[in-house]
Write a protein that binds this DNA or RNA. Sequence first.
RNA 1: GGAGAGGUGGCAGAGUGGUCGAAUGUACCUGACUCGAAAUCAGGCGUAGGUUCAAACCUACCGUGGGUUCGAAUCCCACCCUCUCCGCCA
Length: 428
Amino acid sequence: MLDIQLLRNDLDGVAKSLASRGFIIDAAAFRALELERKTVQTRTQELQAKRNAISKQIGQAKAKGEDVSPIMAEVANLGEELKAAESGLEEIQGRMNEILLIIPNLPHETTPAGKSEADNVEVRKVGTPRIFDFPARDHVDVGEGLKQLDFGTAAKISGARFSLMRGQLARLHRALAQFMLDVHTQEHGYTEVYVPYLVNPDSMRGTGQLPKFEADLFAVQKNENEKLYLIPTAEVPLTNMVRDEIVASESLPLKFVAHTPCFRSEAGSYGRDTRGMIRQHQFDKVELVQIVHPSKSCEALEELTANAETILQKLELPYRVMALCTGDMGFSSAKTYDLEVWLPAQNAYREISSCSNFEAFQARRMQARYRNEKGKPELVHTINGSGLAVGRTLVAILENCQRADGGVDIPAILQPYMGGQKLIEPAH
RNA sequence: GGAGAGGUGGCAGAGUGGUCGAAUGUACCUGACUCGAAAUCAGGCGUAGGUUCAAACCUACCGUGGGUUCGAAUCCCACCCUCUCCGCCA
């Protein structure tokens, strides 16, 4: 959510900035609504002040034992008008809030301008793609060849866009998550957190999934009146830990990591990545979140991105870092780096992590604050990123570490997590 | 699922219809005393919003949402959460 003051004071500037990310704000409508708000709010508060003053008089007169009926008459007709004004104001504020909740964040000044994915800027490229002396198969062929990756059975149990792993592949998947958690907790100073996978609407609103992206979420009915949402990322519970909190400034930065399943309905992406486990309704992810002092968020994003990159480096997977352009960035983000891992079968780099600085956008929705030097509450900044998406990391290993015989070499760093095992043997 | 108790400022804790945004304590800040500190004394100390150049003034907020009333922290209704006991249970 943007600062309402900013919209009041510099609507044109905001509109221009939002236009760079393809969002057109109806400035005229906003101005009209704002004017209406000002009029009605002033009127309402005048009436309230009047009522309070008269009520006070009644109290004092009664205390002295005086006759209050003349004063009562004075306030009699006030009620209707006040009630109308109050409900009018409430209605206007409701409309204003609806507008505010669907306006995306302003891009950071360092975010490259652009319209689409094609305008993203490569920041760095790390590692060299391996040269294969045999045709590289994709992860589906490798995994099914091992008889350890099974989409058919998953489809029978649940439907499309689910996967099922067995045996050593399932273990490798588990090993990856353990390895990532260990690196981030032991080397990068994150606190491991176990979180709920079902969250309430307030939490989804806090991080920006609601109200605009309900269609992307899975929900369950808790009871007649209440819904709970399956988390699309651990960002939601981790970031909402500080919702409605005022954290001590000396405790910043807060650094959290969690390994969770993530659930996404993938509405509107029916034709994309239908093969394999790139785009699933359910996948595991290790998520990094930092809650930081507003002056530190830029460097925190660099740090968190580097933390995520460390995993790819340790796994010896080639990747590149892309700075997303204004037009390709997510709703809540001011600046985003995507990490893209090399997938030889696609002959392309594919997203495996997305690291974003949300500045005060989520904090304002959440009322997540700290006490500044003057003791006044001020909004924190929030940062998060995948470190990494476990399923896609597994895909990258299957493709990059495959052998001509159908087996898969286990990256050295993971071998201790696999009981010392060095490869997954081909099926016989 | 059943029975009971409770949700008030950073914390503790009063307040059961009328200057209550809220006593008191504590924490914190400023000043005095002191060589300095502690103790003591005096003052200050919630959040959000509006009008405004500013000073100042006004409004809302006592778990949440409704209601009664000229007036609600206080009365009524619903819900949420916490605690205790019982039942069930990984």
